[in-house]
Computed example of a mutant assay.
Amino acid sequence: MERFVVISGCSGGGKSTLLAELAKRGHAVVDEPGRRIVKDELQREGAALPWVNGMAFARRAIELALTDRVAASRLEGWVFFDRGLVDAAAALQHLTGEPALATLGGVHRYHKRVFITPPWPEIYVEDAERPHGFDAAVAEHERLIEAYASLGYKVVMLPKTRTAQRVDFIMRALET
């Protein structure tokens, strides 16, 4: 859908902060499937964690991203996604070699522009939900750029600047 906008890219690059600012400005937002899965799995001592069972995690992220799209179709105006279906499919493909990205084809599309948060070591932090290092985040970032480009999306790198300026950048880009 042309009104479904993905913010993807480097883990720890400020995506969640951007989504919070977009919500503050009155836009509909969808939280990252991975973060929600990790919180749930940690609470119930489950194993579908990226550092325990990456395949189970990626499959669950795909299911949640599909559910998010259905729920978002009921919302009005721009809907901003903190990651999405392509991110989950790219993770599954990376882990298993399955052609998960190819199965997306022309279905479940997002806006033609995908906004990417670049690696930004000055703001990167590890936490209980993100226990991987910066090098792993950069490798994931590079895979995501390749995945989105391979599906015909225009990859737009976000500037390393204050959150409000990044949101203004996104909104201006969506006007063109």
Rank of each mutant, 00 (worst) to 15 (best):
M1P: 00
E2K: 10
F4S: 03
I7P: 05
I7W: 02
I7G: 05
S8I: 03
G9R: 05
S11P: 15
S11D: 07
K15H: 04
T17I: 05
L18W: 01
L19G: 11
L19N: 05
E21D: 11
L22C: 13
R25T: 01
H27Y: 14
A28M: 09
V30I: 15
D31K: 11
E32M: 09
E32A: 13
P33L: 07
R36K: 12
R36V: 13
D40S: 15
Q43I: 04
R44A: 02
L49V: 08
W51F: 06
V52T: 09
N53V: 02
M55E: 12
F57W: 05
A58T: 04
R59Q: 15
A61R: 06
I62T: 06
I62H: 05
L64G: 01
L64N: 03
L66R: 14
D68C: 13
A71C: 10
E76V: 12
G77D: 08
V79E: 10
F80R: 12
V86P: 00
D87L: 14
D87H: 10
D87V: 14
A89V: 09
A89G: 01
A91Y: 10
A91F: 14
L92F: 10
H94E: 07
T96M: 09
E98T: 06
P99L: 08
P99Q: 06
A100D: 00
A100H: 06
A102K: 14
L104P: 00
L104M: 08
G105W: 07
V107H: 05
V107D: 06
V107S: 13
R109D: 01
K112M: 07
V114C: 13
V114S: 08
I116G: 05
I116R: 06
P118A: 10
P118F: 06
P119A: 07
W120L: 11
W120V: 02
P121I: 07
E122C: 14
E122S: 15
Y124D: 01
E126Y: 03
E126S: 15
E126T: 14
D127H: 10
A128P: 01
R130A: 13
R130L: 12
H132M: 12
D135P: 01
D135S: 13
D135I: 07
V138D: 00
E140D: 09
H141I: 03
H141K: 04
E142P: 01
L144S: 06
E146P: 01
A149Y: 03
K154C: 08
V155E: 08
M157A: 13
R162Y: 00
R162L: 01
A164K: 11
Q165S: 14
R166Y: 01
R172K: 12
R172F: 06
R172T: 08
L174F: 10
L174G: 08
T176R: 13
